[in-house]
Design a protein around this nucleic acid. Structure first.
Lengths: 400, 400
DNA sequence: AATTAATCGGAAACTACGTTAACAATCACC
DNA sequence: GGTGATTGTTAACGTAGTTTCCGATTAATT
């Protein structure tokens, strides 16, 4: 559906060409190789119009004829598909222990993928490691840096557009220094985009996970840290200061597992509900071998009633956070992710608590995506951006 | 800016006419009486196009020439403005004690306004009272019911589009009965729209209050009940089940003032932070003459340190709710409304608490709108809807 | 009072875009 | 090899917007 927004500006005939080109591209992306006639049926446009618009798109290099379909009566139909080499996207995930990355072409095919353990001791060294990883990825994929249409870095912290800095970077020490952003821009050029890591994971969920076809959902990640990515009306919401979804700052000052030193720095909710908090609480309660949250959950699964109590307590905390999200934005779906969020049985424990707390119970699911989720989300965000850019290049002078 | 949404459909030349007609209408609405030439300059369209499109709009009856401007060289320019009689909107506010309402024309001018104290003892009697109020308002305005383009009722509770019922109606007893909605539709016809009362107030804030020109803001109302209206990207967010903004269900189970009987019915946060909870807490603390929240606030203002403590406690609760909203959606602005929210000094108390809690501090303001806010919001919502409908009628067959 | 300059509204000619209808070319199938 | 379905193009037409030009009108100037 075409929507005319609030302060609309006047439309010219070119606009409708631009819209129709986008419509055709959308269909080609979704349906793979298709013929002109099929595109006419899919889009509702007439055959001559499809031919004409497709011509522009083809001349711009975004699609190409990939083959012919025979077998049916009549001439062999030319099949058109996205030209993968029309653009490349680099996605990078900056974690505290690992750097991960991948290069994908415009069709979404991953051309190279890599994870490395970080040895960097400060922020600038980390920037250099990232640049090195990027070089390796480009080399593996056989791509020159100039061919990159878009680079997306998924990182802890939020980008404040008004201050043009990264803040609230939590466990990634030094990453909120004002020098980091210029250094990154210097390394990766003007096509660089920075996305919060959990927001990127939410985008991956939207493209590859439970969020497919869902208009509004919240991806809640509980693990080493706590965060949320919010997709409303199909668009990721960053917020006016970039802090939308920073639920580690929810004002739940639970006594039990919280650590006051963490509260100010990473948020009081993070301090009481992150993996470290689970371990702390388990140790205090006397759970043996509680060296990690996984082990506490495993103990609970084995029947350790004290550990089970810790797990229930944790489920209550997460349920409160989810309830908060429901009462504020009421999404269609909640996806739980992260080491704790995806732990076996945790989903049911959260839903049980939620039933008591929330005014309505939306769908709640555990993420089925794996370790490369953030990279996948960065790629997805980069592809979106790259498409927008390339589509804008088809017929210059059209402000859509 | 014109935005093409996700699953866009093909565009035809007619679409651009439809867009331009809307653009012209927007300018006429905003700028009052304007000439063709001025419209051409405002919109960027050429004079012949403006003349042609304006012709369609005029023939549809949405605008009319209201006069001529002389004084400058050249022929007198015809001035066009919205034809007020092209549509009428009825807005009604269903409260526990009062029913309020107003009738406005398409230009937004209020033609009649009325408040009555309700005597209804059950939901059906209340529906009848509403119908009576509507009849009086129409009579006062000299309008027939058939001339109403849109009727909007602001009411406690939320409309669940999936179940087609009102729920969570809180203090309005019987209002969530499944018979209410059919009865209302029977009385008010197919143009009836139901909006949550706090959401309506948020819309009023957007049109007449601090929300003017602000893209994303939250209107938080604290008084007899607690609620929020959330405007994101210029649009009111209802949520998938209609419960977006029902912050009375925030999982803050504060011990002090809460009443367990209320918690399940109206939400645990309502039970601990509504006006009734303030009075309960004040009485327990031994504040003399604490018969209403106003009196507790007045005592605090006079220097009663115990009452001041209650007020601080209340400010902390509200700040927690606001902090929650910030961490979830990060709006540009928070507007405090309602009897407690607009109480003198309360704003500063909340901001003080917020500084400690929230990851960022957005603008926070107290509403300056009065008792007719909900009605004004209903009128605003109805006018929007009426415009959409009437614009759709100009050139039939265009799916925008 | 006559002339000048500015402005308004519209008509003519042209461009951009999409639609329908007709058509030649092609291929599977009988 | 004929038949029928299908593909992609061409031609004619309708809608919409733009530029250019022009007559008519009015205030300001001479």
């Amino acid at each position: 559906m075409t929507v005319v927004a609030g302060g609309a500006s006047a439309a010219r005939p070119r606009l409708i060409r631009a819209i129709n080109e986008q419509v055709l591209l959308d269909h080609i992306r979704r349906s793979g190789p298709v013929s002109r006639t099929e595109l006419a049926n899919l889009s509702g446009l007439s055959k001559p119009t499809v031919s004409s618009a497709l011509g522009s798109i083809e001349r711009a290099g975004l699609v190409h004829a990939s083959g012919q379909r025979t077998g049916s009566p009549g001439p062999a139909a030319f099949l058109y598909e996205v030209r993968p080499e029309a653009g490349f996207v680099l996605g990078l995930d900056v974690g505290r222990e690992f750097l991960r990355g991948a290069v994908a072409d415009l069709a979404g095919t991953v051309r190279s993928r890599l994870s490395v353990r970080t040895k960097a001791v400060d922020a600038m060294a980390r920037v250099q490691e990232l640049a090195g990883l990027a070089t390796t990825l480009l080399g593996d994929a056989g791509i020159r840096a100039s061919q990159l249409t878009q680079t997306v870095i998924g990182s802890p912290g939020v980008y404040d557009p008004k201050l043009d800095t990264l803040t609230l970077t939590g466990r990634l020490s030094g990453w909120d220094s004002p020098a980091v952003l210029p250094a990154l821009r210097d390394e990766f050029g003007s096509t660089l985009m920075i996305e919060n890591d959990v927001d990127a994971a939410a985008l991956a969920e939207r493209v590859h996970g439970h969020g497919r076809g869902v208009d509004s959902f919240a991806f809640v990640s509980v693990g080493t840290g706590i965060g949320m990515g919010l997709v409303l009306d199909g668009k990721l919401r960053h917020g006016s200061h970039g802090v939308a979804g920073e639920i580690s700052y929810l004002p739940f000052a639970e006594g039990s597992g919280s650590d006051v030193r963490d509260a100010r720095k990473r948020g009081s909710f993070d301090a009481s509900a992150s993996a470290a908090a689970v371990v702390r609480a388990a140790r205090r309660a006397g759970v043996r071998g509680a060296s990690s949250a996984e082990k506490v959950f495993a103990a609970a699964a084995r029947g350790d009633s004290v550990a089970a109590g810790i797990v229930t307590e944790e489920a209550l905390l997460v349920a409160k956070a989810v309830c908060t999200v429901i009462t504020v934005v009421d999404p269609e779906l909640i996806v739980l992710g992260g080491g704790i969020g995806q732990a076996p049985g945790f989903l049911d424990a959260v839903v049980d608590q939620l039933r008591r707390l929330a005014p309505v119970l939306p769908e709640v699911k555990a993420s089925v995506l794996g370790i490369d989720t953030v990279v996948a989300g960065c790629i997805a965000a980069g592809l979106d951006q790259a498409w927008q850019y390339l589509v804008g290049q088809i017929s210059p002078g059209v402000t859509s």
